[in-house]
Amino acid sequence: MSLGRFLLRRGVQGILVVWGVVTVVFLLRFISPGDPVNFIAPLDASPELRRRIAEELGLNRPMYVQYAEYLAGLLRGDMGFSFLRGQEASAVVFARLPATIELAVAASVVAVVIAIPLGVISATRRHQPADYGATLFSLVGISTPNFWLGIMLILVAAVQFNLFPTSQRPVGFLEAVGHLVAIEFAGPSVAAPLDVRAFADTLGTWLWHITLPALTLGTYFTALITRLTRSGMLDELGKPYVDAARAKGLPETLVRYRHALRNTLIPVITVLGLQLGTLIGGAVITEAVFAWPGLGTLLISSINVRDWPLIQASLIVIGVSFVLLNIAVDALYASLDPRVDYE
């Protein structure tokens, strides 16, 4: 089976899972206590007004009709209307999405850039101080709740030494890029494109604000990948093909990276695929610590005020991103390991 067909099949499976997600999200409202009308209608609303609100929202129709309409709406890109904010739910959610993506990507970059070399060093200098240090770091790293780590980083880096801001995201990454290329995005307008100086300034501000949140979210993954890389490298370096590669005269760097590390990364990617949920969940709580205006803070505040369209929209976007990420991981896995026959 070719990679294309494999992706097609995973895509179809993904669509089924997304449909399941949508259904669960829809049903969530019916299994939750509290009448949605209560959160919209004024406290002294007359029964007549309440009835009219319910009718307006379609809440008095049979469940299956509401479900069908909900699905139909989603297919049109309509995720409902948030009365509390007076905006389309999709507009609110997609305005928040870049912040969460930036955070998750920055954390992943931090993790990969630190963890892979650390794991390799740890495996190739077994029982030396560097190995013990890396092992201790990875043990503590996977055991530390990231909200606490975030608070500790704020305490040390922001409160004590005033190196980084404690919270907020004044500019987005795309705004920085907007100084180079003309792109359309939601946000404050910027000057004409191709302003390198403004680009560097904006990027600097962005980096300055995202450093602590990215470290907070990235530490668990750095620790996990270090651990996996170390044990995988130890496994691979003991295999006969490594000796064979040395016997043909390859320098040790080639043996390590081109041979052993390549095969180590295959299982590492599998485990990371399983851990994507932790990345997204971690992003939610990191956002809460740093008041980062992403999907996580949106979800929490929407739950607190029972803003149903927003709750549903953010859950669906989270679920769909998760499914897409999983397909991407599978494709990456398949491209690294030639033995996968895409089954």
Partner: peptide, 25 residues
């Protein structure tokens, strides 16, 4: 000595199936 592997000593190992890296052509 590493430089001698290749131009001086060529080596063929016992188990061909595990002597090649499975993920490179």
């Amino acid at each position: 000595r590493r430089g001698l592997r290749g131009p001086t000593f060529g080596t063929v190992f016992q188990d061909p199936a595990s002597s090649l890296n499975p993920s490179l052509t």
